[in-house]
Simulated scan of single mutants.
Amino acid sequence: MLMELPAKISLETLTPEMVAKTIDHALLRPEMTIDEVIEGCRLCAKYQVASVCVKSCDVLIAAKQLQGTGVDVGTVIGFPHGNTSTKVKVFEALQAIDDGAVELDMVLNIAHLKSGLYNEVREEIQLIVDAAKARLPNCCIKVIFECSLLTDEEKVMACKLSEEAGADYVKTSTGFSTGGATIADLKLMRASTDPKKTRVKASGRIRTLDYLIECLQAGADRIGVSVTPAIIDDMRARKAALA
């Protein structure tokens, strides 16, 4: 679910419910136990975020926990380096959908992009998009760039290729590399895509309400975080203070 945000984004114009519906809550740490995943899903239902993003092995668990809550289940494809083969990524995407995922955050082939193999990069994204939407028409596909490893020219090209391939979102990073979401990258990604076709997701090292709002102001539509309670509770406290 995409929450419609006010034309002018600020603490004053946003509500806690609006902020919650911009959040994809990440449960992706490799050491995270099943009990922690279940507890994370319960937290997502409590705070009514847009979605939970879990490891592919946890999709079945998350789908069961979140059934009927209004919180979507997402997972990652080719995570975190993007260097598995296209056939494997397609299989992983379809298996995730069969397990209950409705949002897929796929890592593009970073090495192929940096090698100038643009047709291959576009084709891989399109194959995943086409296969996923054939299986589940409303499936949401986000393409992760890992911006900290790319030049600005490569980021612009990644935006172009993702949009041409039919992706729903372009996304800054996995959160597991050398950097996270920056305001400069978000502005560049927003300027390099058609807002009527492609949305922008900020992810990686977003830990405060203030920075989340900055990301929204820079053009992000979704925000990947793992500290949802701290952000939403802060929002509620500040709104109460303003009342």
Rank of each mutant, 00 (worst) to 15 (best):
residue 166 G to M: 08
residue 11 L to M: 14
residue 222 R to Q: 10
residue 146 E to Y: 00
residue 159 C to W: 00
residue 44 C to M: 10
residue 43 L to V: 09
residue 63 A to G: 05
residue 227 V to H: 07
residue 7 A to W: 01
residue 33 T to H: 11
residue 12 E to K: 15
residue 232 I to F: 01
residue 188 L to G: 03
residue 158 A to F: 14
residue 17 E to F: 10
residue 201 K to F: 07
residue 168 D to P: 07
residue 215 C to E: 00
residue 188 L to K: 04
residue 173 S to K: 03
residue 218 A to H: 04
residue 243 A to Q: 13
residue 191 A to F: 00
residue 238 R to P: 00
residue 218 A to K: 00
residue 187 K to M: 11
residue 9 I to A: 06
residue 49 V to F: 01
residue 183 I to T: 14
residue 165 A to C: 10
residue 110 I to S: 03
residue 51 S to L: 03
residue 215 C to L: 07
residue 53 C to Y: 00
residue 27 L to F: 08
residue 89 K to I: 06
residue 105 D to P: 00
residue 171 K to T: 13
residue 51 S to H: 03
residue 45 A to H: 08
residue 31 E to T: 15
residue 75 T to V: 10
residue 1 M to Q: 10
residue 78 G to H: 06
residue 194 D to C: 13
residue 243 A to W: 00
residue 240 A to Q: 15
residue 90 V to T: 08
residue 239 K to Q: 15
residue 157 M to E: 11
residue 192 S to Q: 11
residue 123 E to L: 11
residue 58 D to N: 15
residue 144 I to C: 09
residue 203 S to M: 06
residue 107 V to C: 09
residue 211 Y to V: 08
residue 117 L to R: 07
residue 158 A to S: 10
residue 70 G to I: 08
residue 141 I to V: 12
residue 61 I to G: 01
residue 174 T to N: 08
residue 212 L to G: 05
residue 230 A to W: 01
residue 130 D to Q: 13
residue 153 E to H: 13
residue 50 A to L: 06
residue 144 I to Q: 04
residue 198 T to I: 12
residue 138 N to G: 09
residue 122 R to L: 10
residue 98 D to F: 05
residue 113 L to Q: 06
residue 169 Y to I: 00
residue 134 A to D: 13
residue 73 V to D: 03
residue 83 N to Y: 03
residue 237 A to R: 15
residue 121 V to I: 09
residue 25 H to N: 11
residue 162 S to I: 15
residue 3 M to G: 03
residue 9 I to T: 15
residue 94 L to A: 06
residue 20 A to Q: 07
residue 79 F to H: 06
residue 142 K to A: 06
residue 203 S to C: 15
residue 236 R to I: 15
residue 182 T to I: 10
residue 43 L to D: 01
residue 196 K to G: 06
residue 119 N to S: 13
residue 41 C to I: 07
residue 12 E to T: 08
residue 102 V to K: 02
residue 134 A to V: 04
residue 33 T to F: 12
residue 179 G to Y: 12
residue 94 L to M: 09
residue 143 V to P: 03
residue 153 E to K: 14
residue 92 E to P: 07
residue 105 D to Y: 05
residue 110 I to L: 15
residue 36 E to N: 09
residue 42 R to V: 04
residue 186 L to I: 15
residue 90 V to C: 04
residue 129 V to I: 14
residue 41 C to E: 06
